[in-house]
Structures are given as C-alpha cells and as structure tokens.
Write a protein that binds this DNA or RNA. Structure first.
Length: 481
RNA sequence: GGCACCGUCGCCAAGUGGUAAGGCAGAGGUCUGCAAAAUCUCUAUCGGCGGUUCGAGUCCGCCCGGUGCCUCCA
C-alpha cells in the first residue's frame, strides 16, 4: 500500500516512486504578482500544501519549490495603469500573497524563487537551445522552434496539426511557426529590461520555471504541479524547453488541480466572476475556506457558493467543538506517560483509513468522511462517564488531530477559533458581548426561580439577535447562529 | 472545427466490476423544565437507450445535458 498519484502525462494513477529514496523534489507554479489572489489560487496553494505535508508525514525529505513570476506583461501594464513602478507592484502583491496564504495555513515551501533573480540561468538555457538549433533569435526576440521537439503536445494530448488548424493561434509575422513561443522578448522603450546576447529584453513566461526548477531540483525531478489551466501551453512549453536543453524528461509526475467554478463556470479574471481571498475573509473564517476546498477531490471542479461555505462553517465548528471536548476530557493526563503513545496513534483505525484515502491520489474528501465518523466515536467517548477508557480517548483524539493537521486544519485552539469565528460573524450583527451576557444572566436567574416563561422570553430575545444558547454542565454557553 | 472531462439522494460529495462513504437540509427517538448541542434510527440504484459480463454507477457504443483546453490564467 503506497501513494498513488494521477499523472497528467500518462493520464493514469501511478505508484509514486521517488528518484532518490525517501526524498521528493517538487516544483509548483506560483502566481504572477500583479493582483490579489482569488479562490482559484487558494485551491492550488492548498492542494500542494497538503501534498507537501503528507509527504513529510510519510517520512520524506521534501524539497518544495514554489516560484513567483515577478516580471511579465501584466505586471508592466498594471504598473502603467496605476502610475507605479513595476517593482512596487510586485512587492505589494508578494506581501499580500504571503498574508492571504498565511491565514490559510499554507506552510512555507523550501524555496520561493523569483524569476528576476534568475535571469542568468534563463539566459544560459536560451543560449543552449540556440546552440542546439532548437531556438532562433530574430530582431531581439528569441523563439523556441517547436518543430525541433518531436514530442510537443505529449502532456496536453494535442497534436501540432490540430493546434495549427485552430483559429486562435496568435499571429506574429516574425515567428517561423505560429506555434513557436517566446523565450526572450525584446523590450520596448521605457520597459524594464535585462541585457542579453540578443539585446535588451525580458524573459518569456515559460523559461523561468524551466530554469528555476533545473537550478533547485536538477535536470529531472519528481513532481511538478499547478492548476489545470497551466497544462497548455505553459507546462507543455516547459517540457519542450527543458527536454530540448538537457535531453531529459524534466518531470516524472505532472500533477494538476481542477478549477474553482462559480455557477459551473470557471472562476477567472477575464470572466470577472472571481472572489479574492481577502474578500472571502470578510465573511468567512480562512480555515472554513480551506475545509471547503479540501472537501472534494483535488482534480474535480469545485463549485464556489455561499451555501457551500456555510456548510463548511458548520462542519468546522462541530470539529472544533468536538476537539475541545476531547481535549478537555484528557486535560489532566500527561500524554508522555502513555506507553507507546506515538505507536498507538500510528495504529489507530482512523490513521489507517486516513493513509489509505490519502494514498489514493490524495483523496481528502474520503478523509473528511472518516473524520466525521470518528468524531461520533470521540463525542460518545467524551460523554461516557467511565474514565477507564481515558487513554483510548487520548489516542483517538491525537490520531484525529494529526489527520486534520495534515489537511491544514486545527492550527488554532478551539478557543481561538471560536473567538475569531465570533468576530467574523459579528461584523454584520455588531452585537455587544456584555448585552448578550446580561440577557443570559437574566435567563438563568429566571430559571433558578423556575420562571420558565421569563426564561424562554430571554432566550427568544437572544435568538432574535442571532444568538444560540446551550445549557451545559459547565453553565450556559452561547454562540452566533 | 480539434482534443479532453463531467452528469450519483432536495443541496454538497466519495465510490479497485460484486448489489451505493460522509456532510447539509428533512422525519422520528434519547437527553433537556422547554430548547440547543450530542447521540440513535430513517430517506438514492447512480442523465437516457443498447451492449460486454455470472454480475456495471464503475467497461464499450450511441444519444441527451453541462464544462474545460486549443490566447493570459491556479
């Protein structure tokens, strides 16, 4: 039983066998830093963050590279529109990226290289392609000649003839073949540029990933990831460049995540139907967004809607409440004194189910199902007055928490989560805690004197305000609806 | 036009060819002064029609419906 991953290159699930034992090299396409990230970016980040965490859990040493594209037409255009320096733009949105992703519990990759820090590496790769007659320079531009690469189209399943007959291929008179793509672009006056053997210019989009992955991971590495929309042309072109340069297939497993849709349509800038991550944070807790995005398989399209986020909020609230109860139950225990604690976690049925699901192409949706079922057991055990099974509860709790953490959940304490969730929900309601607590005190006073009519009236008032209350052995607790 | 993918309970969502996980919503029970929470029980034959097979949601064909890629895009 070992990890299987769906490889876009072969269109099948394959057992994952690393190039070097117990080590993984993975490169994931990051973002172009010219705007705030939207939910689609969040999904890609979460998918590969989860993969990263799971590899570490399996005991691999992971070299995880995620780049920033910090030079590109969109950046230059944005800078011109805003009257800002292009580097101010890239800096601003790089900072925003870290902020937004940080709240999603996205762990830091091993390296986060920037394209502009690797111009020399790109130049040498381009030169090598020219030397091998696989690229040609014309008037300051350099293009890759796709005719030089017989396998062009192998990743996306396209053939060159079909592509050429398509009406949407860009017209550019200077290219020998309409499908040839830019490795180096001559800069126009006023645009940022770097000097090169072919004149002042800037790199084409695709070459940065080839150059940086080669630098950090070598000519051939294990995994290259990104959104499905990068399969063609970006990753196709990367293969052509890297393979052309080194003669090696650069990547063993190509992994692509599906889109985030809105009303069945792809969320995208051009359609204008996107939500930025920070917009979502105004109404939903970041961890809710994460849970929502892992509740379906990473390759399936996922429909983004408030209803789905509301459902995810309910699930996560229940998870944290269950966690609070379970931790509370074993609070007096010193877990270090439990014999073979780690071993017991490892052998817990939930851990086994978790691994089976994750090994099947990272099936986080199935993991969620198992966690929901295990939560029932946990809740029952917590309620059970018999304390003989305390150790069992501690082990089950730890197993459950461990699984959740690999999916990027439970990075807050239940108390912190409750507090943050309240603040988010209260943004619209604007309720005062003191007022709520006063009403609850009134109700409890009425209950003391068995004045049920008055007690119920207080509760109705609270419900009207959007406050739900629960009478527990520890007193009356409340939360927002 | 070319190439892919998808269509499972009211909604969301899993499903190596052997008679459908889980969540939300809904119904009923336990608990509770009543509630809430928790817990228990219940609710689908898988877009349609054929075929292969002892057996198909799961493979093949056709049809209907939807999406994506072929241009920048996670």
């Amino acid at each position: 039983m070992s990890l299987k991953l769906f490889n876009t290159l072969t269109r099948s699930k394959e057992p994952f066998v690393p190039l070097k034992e117990k080590q993984v090299g993975m490169y994931v396409c990051g973002v172009t830093v010219y705007d705030y990230c939207h939910v689609g970016h969040a999904r890609a980040a979460i998918v590969f963050d989860t993969m990263f965490r799971y590899f570490q859990y399996l005991g691999y040493e992971v070299n995880f590279i995620r780049n920033f594209t910090d030079i590109d037409d969109k950046i230059i255009n944005r800078a011109n529109d805003k009257g800002m320096d292009w580097q101010e733009i890239t800096h601003k949105y790089t900072v925003a990226f870290h902020e937004d992703m940080g709240k999603l519990n996205i762990a830091s990759p091993t390296e986060e290289p920037k394209a502009t820090d690797h111009i020399p590496e790109m130049l040498s790769m381009i030169q090598s392609l020219i030397d091998q007659n696989k690229a040609y320079a014309i008037d300051g531009d350099v293009f890759y000649s796709i005719k030089s690469f017989k396998d062009y189209g192998c990743l996306s399943g396209k053939n060159i003839n079909d592509l050429q007959s398509g009406a949407r291929v860009e017209v550019n008179e200077t290219k020998r073949n309409p499908l040839d793509f830019a490795l180096w672009k001559k800069s126009k006056p006023g645009e940022p540029f770097w000097n090169s053997p072919w004149g002042a210019g800037r790199p084409g989009w695709h070459i940065e990933c080839s150059a940086m992955s080669k630098k950090f991971l070598g000519d051939t590495f294990d995994i290259h990831g990104g959104g499905k929309d990068l399969v063609f042309p970006h990753h196709e072109n990367e293969i052509a460049q890297s393979c052309g340069c080194t003669g090696q297939q650069p990547v063993r497993y190509w992994v692509h995540n599906g889109f985030v849709n809105i009303d069945k349509e792809k969320m995208s800038k051009s359609l204008g139907n996107f939500f930025t991550i920070r917009e979502i944070y105004k109404k939903y807790h970041p961890e809710v967004l994460r849970l929502f995005l892992i509740s379906s398989h990473y390759r399936s399209p996922i429909d983004f809607s408030e209803k789905n986020l509301d459902d995810a909020t309910k699930v996560l609230t229940r998870f944290y409440e269950g966690l609070a109860g379970a931790r509370n139950k074993t609070a007096t225990m010193d877990l270090k004194l439990v014999p073979d604690f780690q071993e017991k976690i490892k052998n817990h049925p939930l851990t086994k189910k978790f691994e089976v699901a994750m090994n099947d192409d990272l099936n986080t949706a199935v993991v969620m199902a198992h966690m929901n079922e295990e939560l029932k057991n946990l809740n029952s055990a917590v309620k059970d007055k018999n304390s003989a099974n305390l150790e069992e509860v501690a082990v089950a709790t730890a197993a459950w928490e461990t699984a959740g953490r690999i999916l990027g959940l439970f990075f807050l304490t239940p108390e912190e989560f409750e507090k943050e969730l309240f603040e988010i929900k209260n943004r619209d309601l604007g309720l005062e805690v003191s007022k709520i607590e006063q009403l609850i005190a009134n109700r409890n006073a009425a209950r003391q004197s068995k004045n049920w009519t008055e007690a119920d009236r207080c509760r109705d008032d609270l419900v009207q305000m959007g406050v739900l209350i629960e009478d527990t052995p520890n007193g009356t607790e409340w939360k927002l609806k």
